[in-house]
């Protein structure tokens, strides 16, 4: 991701110096960070916290988890694959500028999971993702402790990372910064005072979450009919298949492509891809109407298996990074963390 740093700089910046740093960085990078959008939350008078381009430090929401993950910077909710003019397909131009994304350790691990799918699964890298991925540097937003009750990064082993170009801690109006990437170092203001700062990481989840052993889980699936366990029937009664867990997830990477013709000019149009979700109807619909996993409990099971079993069998690490966004967004209060702990219990009891 980046070369071994030749000289890591650790500094403390005042508010003004921090903005100078961002200004300097902005000369070369588009800066993305979680921001608060007042009144744009799901419920009235509540804010949305989302990734957006920032220019000053005070715009960055340091304290809370973003509702939607930073995956949308690499993998937009909706993306035009081709413009379709008569019979010609033309790729749209993507913004050519490099990007620096402020994100948390779990999300940095999440990007590695997206890499597994988009770059490493199948015969070749996915070009739209790969292009953006090549233009991105990662700035760690330090979490010294879990952000809230939904976090379970420690259980997933995604609480720590060194895969970042720089790291920041917001410290009483000042910014502690560690810069490891040679390209970023010149952006530090000359006045920056040296500081003893290396990022800390959470060492315990607010609630213990027990991740099932993937190989034991495979044996339970294959030899003991685990998919028929009554726990899935219980989720069938609770899950409403709204798909929020998928859309908020840092690592859900499924998409659907479709074509449209512009109403005003039917010989022109687009081939777009949009996020798709294994919980939402029509995900498996085939021409002619046959669908798989019609029932919501089997969708919950399918997603859960992907996150803590299937992906592991392919890539040797779990897809879930414990960011907790699924739990924070579920309108039916289904806790994925509780689900995987329950699976572990079922395996123990066997």
């Amino acid at each position: 991701m980046h070369d071994t740093p030749s000289e890591t700089r650790r500094v403390r910046l005042s508010c003004e110096e921090a903005d100078i740093l961002l200004d300097n960085l902005a000369a070369h990078y588009r800066l993305f960070a979680p921001v608060r959008l007042p009144g744009r939350g799901r419920f009235s008078d509540q804010d949305a916290i989302r990734y957006a381009e920032v220019h000053t430090v005070h715009e960055i929401e340091h304290a809370r988890r973003s509702h939607f993950s930073p995956k949308e910077i690499l993998f937009p909710v909706s993306q035009t694959l081709f413009y379709l003019m008569d019979d010609a397909l033309q790729e749209p131009q993507d913004d050519p500028r490099d990007m620096l994304v402020f994100l948390r350790a779990c999300d940095i691990h999440g990007i590695a999971r997206l890499d597994d799918i988009f770059l490493n699964n199948g015969p070749e890298p996915e070009p739209y993702y790969a292009r953006r991925r090549a233009r991105i540097k990662l700035a760690l937003l330090e979490c010294r402790h879990s952000l809230d009750e939904h976090c379970f990064c420690v259980a997933m082993g995604t609480n720590r990372t060194d895969a970042y170009a720089m790291a920041v801690r917001c410290d009483e109006g000042q910014l502690l910064v560690e810069v490891r990437d040679d390209d970023l170092r010149p952006a530090l203001p000359a006045s920056a005072a040296p500081a003893d700062f290396t990022p800390e990481f959470p060492t315990a989840d607010p609630q213990p979450v027990v991740v099932p052993d993937a190989d034991r889980l495979q044996s339970a699936i294959r030899d003991h009919g685990f998919f028929a366990h009554p726990m899935w029937a219980d989720y069938a009664k609770r899950c409403i298949a709204c798909g929020r867990c998928n859309t908020h997830c840092m690592t859900c990477s499924c998409f659907t492509a479709y074509d449209i013709a512009y109403t005003e000019q039917p010989n022109a149009g687009e081939r777009r891809r949009v996020w798709a979700s294994c919980h939402i109807d029509r995900f498996t619909d085939m021409a002619g109407g046959h669908a798989f996993r019609d029932e919501n409990g089997s969708r919950m099971r399918f997603k859960t298996m992907h996150k803590i079993h299937d992906f592991y069998q392919r890539f040797g690490r779990h897809m879930c990074v414990g960011c907790g966004r699924c739990d924070a967004s579920c309108p039916e209060y289904i806790s994925f963390a509780t689900c995987i702990s329950a699976i572990s219990r079922v395996l123990e009891e066997r």
């Binding site: 939350g41 009235s44 949305a48 939607f68 909710v77 798909g243 929020r244 859309t247 996020w275 979700s277």
Partner: peptide
């Protein structure tokens, strides 16, 4: 309330 991607929001 229904939108899974936050595409819909209220003007504040």
């Amino acid at each position: 309330l229904k939108c899974p991607t936050g595409a819909w929001s209220r003007n504040p």
